[in-house]
Design a protein around this nucleic acid. Structure first.
Lengths: 131, 131
DNA sequence: AACTTGTTCGGCTACGAATAGAACAATAGG
DNA sequence: CCTATTGTTCTATTCGTAGCCGAACAAGTT
């Protein structure tokens, strides 16, 4: 899994890192159970502080995509299996939005609003992140 | 158009305001050509600084949803006509994401990534915001 | 001319991002 | 059992900038 960080980009380093790994998981390029590089190792490999990598990992853990255990490292959640359908739906929606000349920021805001409006969803009551 | 702001929410006031107006426009609850309240008036009505309202308006202008003119106020763009199809697609995608227990933040990040990846889109070369 | 409305300028405050070091607690492996 | 590995917690510092604001300004309306 090739990861490239751009310090000039306004998006935070930990978010860039989380996005890269997240995309790899959703696309199925990394299978469930597979182990990610140790935080300290990846950090020095990318020229970044350990805490930055760890924060990216924590983000993905809170999203339920990976698991973290002391001494064992970061492991991709087993229940994850490349959501091809979801990836396709996302692609379609982006195309539709661009067709209407709707900028990225607007689309994101609309989705965020839609997420909040839909009532009593199972997603908002999920179990808290395991520590 | 009823607007309610929550100062306790971590999302900026201008974003809350922009989201409210944006949703109203996309849903077609305000028609193209309709005039929005003057910044100062709406500001004092909401107990907010004028700049906060004006910034929300500027966001919507940069998204091509409204037009701003001195002395004339903020007017909903005429080409906008309630993108019902888009609104439906968004709703479906959110449902799909929740089905997979994918949190909002993860979905937003995935869409943001998808937006960047798709090459040579017409959307990225649109005319700059009129000042 | 007077009024309305968005724009620009300058400044202030609070918060987030990133880094750093150190000590700590599970876990794995020999 | 002992040791190395690995994530977790804690405290702290530096730096940039996002958010909010007041006052003066400029374009447009009436």
């Amino acid at each position: 899994m090739l990861i490239r960080l751009d310090p000039g980009d306004s998006t935070p380093l930990f978010e860039q890192l989380a996005s890269a790994v997240r995309a790899a998981i959703i696309d199925g390029r990394v299978i469930g159970g597979e182990r990610l590089p140790a935080a300290r190792q990846l950090a020095s490999s990318l020229g970044v502080n350990m805490h930055t990598v760890l924060r990216a990992y924590r983000v993905l853990r809170d999203e339920g995509l990976i698991e973290l255990h002391r001494g064992r490292g970061a492991v991709v959640a087993v229940r994850i299996g490349g959501h091809a359908a979801l990836a396709g739906a996302i692609h379609d929606l982006v195309d539709e939005a661009k067709l209407h000349d709707l900028p990225e920021s607007a689309l994101l805001a609309l989705i965020s609003a839609a997420y909040r409006w839909s009532p009593s969803s199972p997603g908002v009551l999920r179990t808290p992140p395991t520590r």
